[in-house]
Design a protein around this nucleic acid. Structure first.
Length: 89
DNA sequence: GTTGAGCGTT
């Protein structure tokens, strides 16, 4: 039972570890995926965090709109979710 | 050598 969260407006200098640690403060982080530009290999500035459904809801509520490394984070349930685990959130 | 709304690499 996990939910994929879309995380946007991440600072270009941020690291997956920092996002994972940030989300871990509000729940159990199952996985963190930073989206890189496959052509240039640069960070696109957004990523996805997978958490248990209940923790994901809390994380969105607690982290969406908050500041992270000078940028206002955008946290929301992912749309193009490869995982169909948004059933019991 | 850059940038700033969005929905992803196995």
């Amino acid at each position: 039972m996990t939910t994929s969260l879309f995380v946007g407006n991440i600072a270009y200098g941020a690291m997956e570890k920092e996002i994972r640690d940030l989300f871990a403060q509000h729940g159990t982080v199952q996985n963190v995926r930073f989206i890189m530009d496959l052509r240039k290999g640069r960070f696109k500035g957004y990523g996805f965090v997978t958490m248990p459904n209940q923790d994901a809801v809390v994380a969105v509520r607690e982290l969406d709109g908050t500041e992270f490394q000078g940028r206002t984070l955008k946290v929301k349930e992912a749309r193009a979710s490869v995982d169909a685990d948004r059933r019991s959130a």
